[in-house]
Amino acid sequence: MREVTDWLVHQFNITFVVSNRYRLFIEGFRNTIIIALCAAVIGIFIGSVVAMVRVYCAQTGRLKIIDILFGAYLAIFRGTPIVVQLLIMYYIILQSLHNALLVAVIAFGINSGAYVAEIVRAGILSVDIGQTEAGRSLGLPAFRTLILIVLPQAIKNILPALGNEFVILIKETSVASFITVRDLARAGANVRATTMEPYFSLIFVALVYFCLVFGVTKLLRILERRLAKSDRNNSR
């Protein structure tokens, strides 16, 4: 028994206390959060714009060239691994930035945007076409009909899938270390490498990711339930 506690205390010490290693974890956690949050904001922005333009184009036949470009964007970023995208961004396209964290934010944001675009588009298309026809028949232009009438109804369908995408994004940021970002996963790996002890460092990191994802998932559930409630009270 004594031996076990000794071992535990020793492991704890070299993982967190010696050389203030806990700071590495805090820094890693901070970077992971920064990447996930900023990338989510960028992704939602890009995704919404792309989705709305694509729906608008499908309805009116305008902006054809932009639609083709956006189609290519979706195909490329959904069709290649995020690690490869990250490396290409860091070593080729954005090499002049010299800021790995910023490159990670941009790369994950653009990648996430491609997935969000499909989520938003599916949400918009799930709204009855009669809603669009009613708006257009009142003389509202196509884009305003989309914003004022269709999108508010689509959000209920979009939100759950968007939450999933955010959870996936949180976990995916763990490959940011490929371009030297010191994120949470990297912190664990670094500590393991210096202490030569894998147990505490890696399992602790796994635990933090789990709590993060678990918490976000719970929050989203609550939000969904709220929306479902307002759905029963307010619509159709």
Partner: peptide, 20 residues
């Protein structure tokens, strides 16, 4: 067309009221 449609009211079989 959008201007012209203002002058033509349309009523649908399924009402198509805006539920939100």
């Amino acid at each position: 067309l959008n201007k012209i449609r203002r002058k033509m009211g349309m009523v649908f079989q399924n009402f198509n009221l805006f539920p939100h």
